[in-house]
Design a protein around this nucleic acid. Structure first.
Lengths: 151, 151
DNA sequence: CCAAATTTGTTTCATTTGTAACCATTGAAA
DNA sequence: TTTCAATGGTTACAAATGAAACAAATTTGG
């Protein structure tokens, strides 16, 4: 028999969203205050720093961003001279994106801030709680995979 | 010693955000297709259905929404005649919001769809995985609480 | 009692977002 | 080949968002 009401505070989609939103806003203060980056710009910086070189489509796949977000973030980082576009030899639709020296410097700085942020976040939890969140998130990711190339 | 790179796919803030975003988008299809609701409108409907009556400020606290979102969602639900505003006897700044019969009907329908959605989401996980996600989310919520009345 | 500060909620404006249309190029089919 | 569909990426437009200014009512502190 169906319950008549729904407790928003116990509804997993809501709880997940609120949690992610809070954590993400907290973290965004760091790259916003330090470098004036938006979230798509941070993800672009992060993706290229990690992988070295990617096309816009690959960036979108890696960081779960809509292609218009990628396009705009890339344009802005290029304007800052934090990345360069290199043509593909065989396919002129494609550009290989890579960080410049300045982009890489910003990336390295952000990496240590990001790691510190995550460490401090997890430090608030007990060992079992840390294990639980990681296991639970991984499990859901596994069952949703594929859903997030779409958008 | 600090790692030089950061793997976005393992970075908890990113993973949480992507997961929540995917789940939320999936769920939003339901209220969007069924009733043409936005997320703030859904949360408003849900909050009032659950609690019966609330002021705009209380709604914002319960559902973690910015006051401008609340204001707009309430205006739209009022336009649909899904809720009514009732003046407060002692404080004329306040209005007590409540669902109309039509609003309540929509709410009841949404409750069963929401419950089904959550059930199906959790059904993809093993019992331990379900326990893990719930425990992990609750733990983080507990350590972040208070952070989300702000915005 | 009165002025200043606070609270509640709305509105304005600039920014961010996403859908859809678009251009250029490439690949596939005839 | 020549066409037609698919792909990579940008742009234009409309909708959603949030910060800040605002009006109205209430509370607080002389």
């Amino acid at each position: 028999m169906e319950p008549e009401i729904l407790e928003l505070e116990r509804f997993l989609p809501y709880r997940l969203y609120r949690l992610a939103d809070t954590v993400s806003r907290e973290f965004s203060k760091i790259y916003k205050e330090r470098h004036g980056l938006t979230r798509p710009e941070w993800r672009t910086l992060s993706g290229l720093g990690q992988r070295g070189t990617m096309t816009a489509t690959e960036l979108g796949e890696q960081s779960a961003m809509h292609k218009t977000k990628v396009s705009r973030a890339v344009a802005e980082l290029e304007r800052r001279r934090w990345l360069t576009r290199n043509p593909d030899r065989n396919d002129r639709r494609i550009e290989h994106l890579a960080l410049t020296r300045a982009g890489l410097a910003a990336y390295r700085e952000m990496v240590s801030l990001a790691n510190a942020f995550e460490r401090e976040l997890l430090a608030r939890l007990s060992a079992e709680e840390r294990a639980a969140i990681v296991k639970g998130v991984a499990a859901l990711e596994g069952r949703l995979g594929g859903a997030w190339a779409k958008y």
